[in-house]
Design a protein around this nucleic acid. Structure first.
Length: 485
RNA sequence: GGCCCCAUCGUCUAGUGGUUAGGACAUCACUCUUUCAAGGUGGAGACACGGGUUCGAGUCCCGUUGGGGCCA
């Protein structure tokens, strides 16, 4: 118990789950699983005016999607106010904290004025210097008061597992507010109390919290509590190298799910953003990542989020899946795009699996199914402009039209016989096979590229191939007639 | 402005005093192919700068510059 590894994810419920938070959560979780420790969920909702169930569900859904199970919680700070107040009282009793009656708006004005004239500003402890009479006066007037933590005059240093020795002078830290006038604790106090109460052994969080750590260490010391170990993770940046935020586009974890990314690929990619196993491995399943994971191997430099590489990796995962798995993952998207109906799952199962096999190499995300394979399912696929320019002309139409009877005559409609028929026809008519293949592909699929044409034609079926081709030929003829008239 | 963190190809990274500085994505060329992909082969591409320490520095120290974060 004493040496048990216990880490936490402590999200503030903002209504969405940032990929940066997901990465932080992931590293905590990997660390816990690697050391057979506990991963605890704690919702830091004291700051939030109203944190709804829904906001928390976003977090839970995200963790679940990525396969990160938690061992305890979620605990809610908003339900633990009395605990924090108890600790604040302890500090007050020991003269390690004091009441402050200053009007926050006044202080804010002073601060802004100081910044404007490029001066540093810190709270000057004026309420600490209040005489008993002055204090009594303010109490009598019922002026709202907060509790400030008295920063002792010393330097603070701590050992960060990623950044090594970090030192900060106490004079650079101001007496921070730890309890608001409404009795709600501030971030630093609640965090310290909870990290202790929940037995957190390692605080693994992003580096933008590193300036909070000395304050928290001072709080641990003032409260006489044991300190956890600290590891401050590098930030995830957008392409302009500033902290990844909404203005960079998709930063919510669930938007990646909606865009058709697989949780395994997401975990794999995120794990490599700031960490590496030390060898050249990149494609790793979650189990392998857990086994290799080590805080010592985290790169302290910030990392740019590279969606292109994530996309590539996702494609690798899709290609590596069994057709059954792929179909299952694809299903909700195919329903959404109107490619299939619920009952097709049973009726057309084996056909669907064959389509999966044929297109899986071309899918980078699950949503690609609509672009890459729409023509297998429905008739409203589009024709590539460039392709029509090439093949929608008298000479080509003629070639295809000549070939159609041969296609019709094929008895055993399998790839081999279609190919044989095309090649024979080409030979007897002194054509290159591609002169038939290319327009045929365009007419049947609307595209110039794709899986092998003959296999594709088998899956689309003879009748549909014929009718699609005839439709194009008729369209062309109609167009010619209109021109001559 | 103050304080803090960071610095290897465009991007993610390997590298812990002696390496032709390795890999991956992206990019380019070739190859395979009915096409598009994927694959295969190859190319181009980095130690921010300046001082030290050392026989020897991407690697250790200091400074500069640049980027980022927090205070907001």
């Amino acid at each position: 118990m004493k040496n048990e590894i216990r880490v936490r994810m402590a999200p503030s419920p903002t209504g969405f789950f940032h990929v940066g938070s997901a990465r932080t959560a992931l590293y905590n979780w990997l660390f816990a699983r690697h050391h057979k420790g506990k991963f605890i969920l704690r919702v830091e909702d004291t700051d939030v005016a109203r944190s709804s169930e829904k906001m928390i569900d976003v977090i839970l859904d995200g963790l679940t999607w990525l396969g990160m199970n938690w061992d305890e919680g979620p605990y809610f700070q908003s339900k633990r106010l009395d605990i924090y107040q108890k600790y604040v009282q302890q500090l007050l009793d020991n003269d390690l904290a004091y009441y402050c009656y200053c009007d926050p708006e006044d202080l804010e004005k002073e601060k802004q004025a100081a910044y404007k004239s490029k001066e540093d500003w810190q709270y000057d402890r004026r309420c600490l210097k209040l005489s008993p009479a002055e204090r009594a006066e303010k109490e009598k007037k019922k002026i709202p008061k907060v509790v400030r933590f008295f920063i002792p005059n010393q330097s603070v240093s701590f050992h960060d597992l990623i950044h090594h020795e970090i030192r900060r002078e106490a004079k650079d830290i101001e007496d921070l507010i730890i309890l608001r006038s409404n009795g709600v604790p501030t971030y630093n106090l609640a965090c310290v109390v909870d990290d202790y109460e929940m037995g957190i052994s390692h605080v693994i969080r992003a580096v933008d919290h590193i300036t909070n750590t000395p304050k928290q260490i001072l709080l641990f010391e003032a409260l006489g509590l044991p300190k956890p170990e600290y590891a401050h993770l590098p930030l995830i940046l957008g392409h302009d190298k500033s902290k990844l935020s909404k203005r960079h586009g998709a930063v919510s974890l669930m938007s990646y799910k909606e865009q058709g990314y697989l949780p395994g690929a997401m975990v794999n990619y995120l794990s490599l953003l700031g960490w590496s196993p030390g060898d050249d491995r990149e494609m790793m399943n979650t189990q392998e990542i857990i086994e290799s994971f080590d805080l010592n191997r985290i790169n302290p430099a910030n990392a740019v989020f590279d969606e292109t590489k994530l996309e590539w990796m996702n494609g690798q995962y899709i290609y590596g899946m069994s057709n059954e798995m792929l179909l299952q993952q694809l299903w909700p998207f195919m329903i959404e795009y109107g490619l299939v109906k619920e009952q097709d799952n049973e009726k057309k199962k084996s056909w669907l699996l064959r389509v999966c096999q044929l297109v899986k190499l071309r899918l980078k995300t699950l949503t690609d199914i609509n672009d890459v394979a729409r023509y297998f399912f429905v008739e409203d696929y589009e024709y590539e402009e460039d392709g029509l320019n090439k093949h929608f002309n008298a000479a080509t139409i003629r070639i295809v039209e000549d070939f159609l009877p041969k296609l019709e005559d094929i008895e055993e409609y399998i790839a081999l016989s279609i190919e044989e028929s095309v090649r024979n026809h080409a030979e007897t008519n002194k054509l290159k096979a591609r002169q038939i293949i290319h327009p045929l592909r365009l007419f049947i699929t609307g595209r110039q590229g794709g899986p092998g044409l003959f296999e594709t034609m088998v899956l689309i079926g003879k009748e549909r191939c014929l009718s699609r081709t005839r439709r194009l030929i008729n369209d062309f003829k109609k167009q010619q007639e209109e021109k001559t008239n």
